[in-house]
């Protein structure tokens, strides 16, 4: 008789996964980062504590900390190797980052949240 765990595992559905971008978590004391296009990736938005701070208006009163989530979207079809190249280029430009999160579409649907 299958256990509840077995039943749960059996429900897994195969989904098509496509790499479409990277969320980079950058630490800086210099305010909102500015980026040129880096390799196959272009910065789409930057948020701080979950609030979008670039592009567009940001209130001067908004509390910001030294940790920015910078969303880079692919400008062309990309592979994991392109992420390695991107990370290397970003580091060489002097950006200090705490983490990188690959962004994938699952069956064409984004597997990542937008920013407020």
């Amino acid at each position: 008789m299958p256990t509840c765990t077995d039943i749960a595992k059996a429900t897994k559905k195969k989904r098509e996964i496509k790499l479409v971008g990277i969320d980079m978590y950058i630490i800086t004391e210099e305010g909102i980062p500015k980026f040129d296009e880096i390799g196959a990736f272009k910065c789409e938005f930057i948020s701080n504590r979950g609030t979008k701070v670039w592009p567009g208006f940001v209130s001067p009163d908004l509390l910001q900390v030294n940790w920015y989530r910078c969303r880079f979207m692919a400008t062309q079809t990309v592979q994991d190797a392109d992420v390695n190249t991107f990370l290397d280029a970003l580091t060489k430009k002097g950006w200090w980052w705490s983490a990188a999160q690959k962004l994938w579409n699952y069956d064409g649907e984004p597997g990542f949240s937008k920013a407020y």
Binding site: K12, D23, R69, Q101, L103, G111, F112
Partner: peptide, 8 residues
């Protein structure tokens, strides 16, 4: 609002 599907 920082959520990801980190695998399928």
């Amino acid at each position: 609002a920082i959520e990801h599907m980190v695998s399928d």
